[in-house]
Design a protein around this nucleic acid. Structure first.
Lengths: 191, 191
DNA sequence: GTCTATAGGAGGATAGAC
DNA sequence: GTCTATCCTCCTATAGAC
């Protein structure tokens, strides 16, 4: 019961974070969306920052599960493409929380959350291994620092290009994903 | 005198917007940074949103001046690279205001500001012409919709990859710009 | 653990004197 | 146009009854 309720809370937080961002999301909205009183929310999570952290932990777990299910697939670069496509699908579906990278109290809470930090490290390690493998195979540009590649992939999760193309109404979500996958991996120049 | 003071205000707003973002920036901070009282600020600009809009107009004018100075240069794609590099340099120098794309009152003010809207349209038209020219020359991938290319270039101005690489301390600003220019135009895959 | 009610504070905007 | 002082709204967080 308690877990089910907390799952419902996290789901609401996730959606509201994706829709309005951390600053614009209010705890009153979350409580109203879940259908409980604000004070009850604070019995489950001690602060707004912890609400956001719980949402991020949830997304991180989903990412880890996606990586697990990917283990049998073909090449390293194909796995990377799949992960990025999945991430962009989440964002286009309005399920990718957007947090300001500048808010210091939020960063402190996130970095103090072991579940989040461990999840992030695990995901980064696995992606990093695939990146270096793909570089050694000559599929990814070996001159790029692996960390720059990793950040470039992470950045697809908060890419404004996605929402710009989405509001334009000219392309379906799948077309947008295919488009941005192309620009990300193949670049803007002709091959 | 009045123009000089308003320039000083815009400069402070620009820096604070780049450093903290729109939501975290307070009007009190702006007033303190300029060295005048908050009420005096409101004699120059009617709202916080208008402060941000004035900063964006200022950046847009700088962009137009940069485009003007570029007219004699070589190929279309080289001009695009130059513009993107200039934009990233602004961001790395902490002079690129960062606005939330979700804040509706801010968007309303921006879209109601003729200087901003006209500047944005002018810049977009000029970049769009170079994009289509480069595509017809076969230098940029002709299969990409020009608007997707335009958004991809604009997105470099708020790319979190830049700040992530910058806090890592491993690369100079020039190296970061070169790196992201490569991933943007040539992609992550080997050529 | 849920509620109603409220404390407490931050921050955008204004009043009114000079 | 600049100042000081203040208003007022919004929002996070908590008190205290049940």
């Amino acid at each position: 019961m308690l877990l089910a309720r907390e799952d419902a809370i996290i789901q609401s937080v996730n959606r509201l974070l994706a829709e309005k961002g951390f600053d614009a999301m209010t705890v009153d909205e979350v409580a109203a969306d879940v259908g409980i009183a604000k004070a009850s929310l604070y019995k489950h999570f001690p602060s707004k920052e912890d609400l956001a952290a719980a949402a991020m932990v949830s997304v991180m777990r989903q990412a880890q599960a996606f990586l697990d299910a990917l283990a049998a697939e073909s090449s390293a670069v194909d796995k990377l493409r799949s992960v990025v496509a999945w991430t962009m699908g989440l964002k286009l579906a309005g399920e990718m929380p957007s947090l300001p990278s500048q808010n210091s109290s939020l960063r402190a809470t996130l970095m103090g959350n072991k579940d989040y930090v461990n999840g992030l490290m695990d995901v980064s390690d696995r992606l990093g291994a695939w990146i270096e493998l793909a570089q050694s195979q000559g599929v990814l540009n070996p001159k790029l620092p692996p960390v720059a590649v990793l950040y470039t992939l992470y950045a697809r999760a908060c890419d404004p290009v996605l929402e710009f193309l989405q509001v334009g109404q000219l392309y379906t979500n799948d077309e947008i994903i295919a488009l941005v996958l192309t620009t990300c991996f193949e670049g803007l120049e002709s091959r």
